[in-house]
Write a protein that binds this DNA or RNA. Structure first.
Lengths: 357, 357
DNA sequence: GCGCGATACTAGCGCGCTCTAGTGCGGCTA
DNA sequence: TAGCCGCACTAGAGCGCGCTAGTATCGCGC
C-alpha cells in the first residue's frame, strides 16, 4: 500500500450506531468469562449444555457475530483462501462458483479479489495477502512467471489453468494436448484442412494450446497448413483476429480454433456481423465451456474442462501445502473433452470464398 | 457460524515457511521503533525522509506487507466495503467491476462475497460482516425485506437495483418506470400489441418493472393485452417461460419484454431452438444491458443502466452513512435508456402463428 | 542562560479474539 | 480422611497493528 493511499486518511469514528457487540458483551450478559464464550462459539468441549444454550441465546439477542479479523489475528491459522479471478472471464466465474463448496468442505473461508481493467493482478493479490489469506488460488493469472515465483515464496500458491515449470506452486489444469488434439481430429474428420488457431498470446494456458494445436496438425500431415493468428483471451482479441482474417487476400480458413471461449465469441461476433455464415462458411471452436458457451444463441462447440473437480483439486492442493504434507510443485491434470454444438460442421464442398461485403 | 463448522477444527501450525514478517521485524532491521514504521507506512508526518527511505528498503527486503486483519482490528475504521453479488449474473459482475474504481477513489477496500447456488445470500453476508466490512453493498439481493432490515440495523447498507420502502438502507437504482415505458413505447411504435412481460417474480427490481410494464400498457390503451408470464432472473426462468408460451393454445405474442437480460437470453434460447424466428416472429427485449447482451450472437435489445454511476453513487452513499452525514434511507435513481439491437423489430403483418414443431 | 517550539522519535495500551495453563469443586476410590 | 480424576470454567498473554501521550534533541530568540 502506498503512503498516499486515501485509506490512510486518519478519519476515524464512523457513525456511532451502537458499537458492534463483542464477545465480552456476551460474556457479561451471561455472567461467564470471555474464554467460555469463545469455547462455545468454536464448538469445543468444555462447556455444559446449559451454558452453551445461554451463550447462544445472549449472542442472538445482542446480535453478536464473531469478528473474523480478530479471530484471524488471534488464531494461528486463518483458514482463509484468497482467490484471484478475472471478473470479465465467465470461465473464471464458473471456477469461483465451484471453489466455494470445495473450500467449505475442507473448512476454508474464501476471500475474492477480482482483477478488473482498473485494478491489475498485482494489486488484487496484495489485497488478498493483506486480508490474511493463508494460501492463494490464482485463476489463470497473467502476470509473469517470476512474479508468481516471488509471491509463491511468500505464501502457498495454487495456479489454476496455467502451466508453470519453474515457480514453486501447485498447478491444477487440464491436459491441453488431448483437448486440442480432439478438436483437430474432429475438424479433420469433418473434412477441414484449413484450420487456423487464434491464440491467446502469453495468456494463461495459451502457449500450451498453441503447441497442442501445432502438434495435432502435424500428426495429421497438415504441417504446412498450420497457421496461428495472434489473439488473446477476450472478445476484443477474437474480434481483432476475425477482422484480420477478413482483411486478408484469399479465402477464409474453413475452421478456426480459438484459445478460449471469449476469443471464440469475439470471432463469432465479427464473422456474423460481416455476413460470414457459421458454421457453413467457417466453423468456430472455443475452449473452456464457460457457461455462456452453452447458450443457444452462442451454442459454441468447445472443450469442456471439469470445473468442479478442478476447483476441488485446487483447494485440496492448497490445503496440503498448508498442512505441510508435501512441498509445493505438484502438477495435477484433468481430462477435458470436446463438446460439439452448433458452431461447427463440415466445410462447404468446393472451398469457401470470402464474401464481398 | 455454527459450532460444527469445520473451520473450528483446532488444527494449527501450517507449514512453517518462515513466518510472515511483521512490523516489528522491519523496525528491528532498521533499528527504530514499531511506531515509526507504522507512521511511515501510513504516510503520516513525523519521520525524516532518510528514515522513511530506510524503512521502505528494509520492508522490501523482508517482503513485509501490512496485515489487514491487524490493521482493521487496531484502526477504528476498517475502510472495507463488503460487496454481495450473484456470481452467475453478468450484470452483477459488471457492477462489481465498476465498484472497484469508485471505492478506491474514496479510499475504500473491497471484500467480495458471491452468492452461488450452494451458498445463499445470508451466508455470504455473514462472511462479509465477519471480515469487518464497515458497510455492505448488496447487488440485487433476493432475501426478504425483513432480513435486510435486520442486517441494516447492524451495519450501514446500500442496496443496488432493488426497491425497498421500509428498510433503513440507501437504495441506488434506475428509474424502472421510464425504462419500461420506453420499451413499451418502442414496441407499440413498431406495431406490436401483444406484448407479454416475463417477470422476475420477487427478484430484485422485478416487481417495479412488472408494475411499470402494466402502467405503460395501460397508457397505450392496451390494458386488455396486459399479460405477465411468471419467470425469474435466470436463463432457466426465461426458458421455462418460453416453453410455457410455446405449449399454449393460440398464437405467440409478437413481443416479449423480459425482466432482465438473463431471462431474455433464456427466452431466446428456447425460442430459437424451437424454430421461432427472432425478431421476425417474436421480438425479445431484455433489461440491464449486461456485457453479454451486446455480443453479436445475442445482440439483445435491452435497457441500459448507467453502471459506473450506479456504482459510484452506491459507494458514495455508503461513505455518507459511515461518516454519519445523514441517516440511511436515501433513494437515488438514475436514468436508463433503451438500446435497440437485433432481437426486436416490427411484427409480421397478418399476425404470427406458433410454428408446428 | 533560559524557555520555547519544532522535529524525530518511543513506550505502551487496546482492538476482539484464541489458547495455554491453570483453579475450584464434586464425586469416586482406598 | 486423604488422594485423585475429570468436568466446568477462568486468568492472562499475545496475535500485528494504530494511536495517544509522551521524551530527547535541536535551533532559536531574548
Amino acid at each position: 500500500m502506498s503512503p498516499q493511499d486515501p485509506r490512510n486518511r486518519p478519519d476515524r469514528t464512523p457513525a456511532p450506531r451502537s458499537r458492534k457487540p463483542t464477545m465480552a458483551d456476551v460474556a457479561a450478559k451471561v455472567g461467564v468469562s470471555r474464554a467460555l464464550v469463545s469455547l462455545v462459539f468454536r464448538g469445543q468441549p468444555g462447556a455444559s449444555p446449559e451454558t452453551r444454550e445461554r451463550v447462544f441465546e445472549a449472542a442472538a439477542e445482542l446480535g453478536y457475530r464473531p469478528d473474523m479479523a480478530a479471530r484471524l489475528l488471534a488464531r494461528g491459522r486463518s483458514k482463509v483462501l484468497g482467490v484471484l479471478f478475472t471478473a470479465r472471464n465467465p470461465y473464471h466465474v464458473d471456477l469461483v462458483e465451484a471453489v466455494y463448496p470445495a473450500a467449505e468442505e475442507l473448512g476454508y473461508d474464501l476471500v475474492l479479489s477480482a482483477a478488473v481493467p482498473t485494478r491489475d493482478e498485482h494489486k488484487a493479490i496484495e489485497a488478498l495477502i493483506g486480508h490474511r489469506s493463508e494460501a492463494l488460488l490464482l485463476c489463470g493469472p497473467n502476470i509473469p512467471e517470476e512474479d508468481i515465483t516471488e509471491i509463491a515464496r511468500r505464501i502457498p500458491t495454487v495456479v489454476v489453468g496455467r502451466h508453470l515449470r519453474g515457480a514453486p506452486v501447485d498447478v491444477v489444469t487440464s491436459y491441453d494436448r488431448p483437448g486440442a488434439r480432439e478438436v483437430v481430429d474432429y475438424l479433420v474428420g469433418l473434412g477441414h484442412e484449413d484450420i487456423v488457431h487464434v491464440d491467446g498470446g502469453s495468456r494463461a494456458g495459451a502457449p500450451e494450446r498453441r503447441r497442442a494445436y501445432r502438434d495435432a496438425m502435424r500428426s495429421h500431415g497438415l504441417a504446412d497448413r498450420i497457421r496461428v493468428v495472434p489473439g488473446n483471451h477476450t472478445e476484443e482479441g477474437g474480434g481483432d483476429a476475425a477482422r484480420a482474417m477478413l482483411a486478408e487476400e484469399g479465402p477464409l480458413p474453413t475452421a478456426v480454433f480459438a484459445s478460449n471461449d471469449q476469443c471464440a465469441i469475439g470471432l463469432l461476433d465479427v464473422f456474423t456481423r460481416a455476413g460470414v455464415k457459421v458454421p457453413e462458411q467457417v466453423s468456430v471452436v472455443g475452449y473452456d465451456d464457460s457457461h455462456i458457451a452453452g447458450l443457444s444463441h452462442i451454442d459454441l462447440t468447445t472443450v469442456r474442462q471439469d470445473v468442479p473437480r478442478l476447483a476441488h483439486l485446487a483447494v485440496q492442493a492448497a490445503d496440503e501445502q498448508l498442512r505441510g504434507v508435501r512441498e509445493a510443485g505438484a502438477v495435477l491434470k484433468l481430462e477435458s473433452k470436446l463438446l460439439i454444438r452448433g458452431t461447427s460442421g463440415p466445410p462447404l464442398s468446393g472451398g469457401t470464398r470470402r464474401p464481398i461485403y
